[in-house]
Design a protein around this nucleic acid. Sequence first.
DNA 1: TTCAGTGCAAAACGTTTGCAACACA
DNA 2: TGTGTTGCAAACGTTTTGCACTGAA
Lengths: 164, 164
Amino acid sequence: MSTHPHGEGCSCAHEAGRTPLPDLTDKLRRQAHKVTGPRQAVLEILRRQGRPLAIREIHQALPEGDCDLATVYRAMHLLKGMGMVQRFDFGDGVARFELLAEGVDGHHHHLICVRCAEVVAVEECIPEEMERRIAERNGFTAVTHKLEFFGICARCQGGVRCET
Amino acid sequence: MSTHPHGEGCSCAHEAGRTPLPDLTDKLRRQAHKVTGPRQAVLEILRRQGRPLAIREIHQALPEGDCDLATVYRAMHLLKGMGMVQRFDFGDGVARFELLAEGVDGHHHHLICVRCAEVVAVEECIPEEMERRIAERNGFTAVTHKLEFFGICARCQGGVRCET
DNA sequence: TTCAGTGCAAAACGTTTGCAACACA
DNA sequence: TGTGTTGCAAACGTTTTGCACTGAA
């Protein structure tokens, strides 16, 4: 999980870890929201991990139950509304959130190991005309999509189930 | 919701409504499972609706709470294990199940209206080589994907929110 | 007859909310 | 100081499970 899928110096959309914490909190302040301890802590964790995190994971990563679980839920709701995080669903009934890099639309997908739950960011996307075609054919507008890939990662292929 | 998106005489993958109920129950019997009232009722509803249904929806469609909610959950779990239904997640925290046509792998996607929740089946799929490329690049095997489209349906575009 | 399947109730789980106490601006 | 935010606890909706009873084969 520590190795970056795209090598050193990558600047792909999910690389929000590059945004310094002060820039993130400033964004809060600018929109008339208070910069509190819990919010800073949550942002710092999202920034450092740079991958989709479940609310439970974020809460457990906080030092000594520093903040209430409900507060993390409320923080994520706020950040989602501000467009600072994106929500992903991997089909296990748990919402996951990932920090978005500043100025990037952040649209990307994931490849998830069904054995160990390792997550790799996938920048590739479906052909644009495919979405347009589907929208037109059915009379829909404002069409978006959710796409996630599932498989077995290299470490888990030997029958050995890796950690994480 | 009653109009078929592909017109009359369609034979696309999700058209499991064509499979007669006796054929479905036979499948159960062949695998040493009992054909009970609740199971027949659930299958009949899935067959007639021919679209992804939430467990709650299935239960409410049953005549007069004919069967317990837990029984519907157990029935869906069984049918899923037998490969007779496919599970879909539309990102609202509710699992939906759709009956699969006999002999078809049933792989397809959906276009969901974010206003009225109307669901249209989508047969189009991502390019095969895209999935293969993503698998190889990341050292994954047995890669599958989940893809759903979201937009605003024709009836909901006027600002008028349609029923259903 | 027998064991898989059922109904009922309780619990597990992720998530939301009401309210009094609190702390950032 | 005042309002937005927090912690706590309770409520919520979906899903699972334990257990005694029932009914399909």
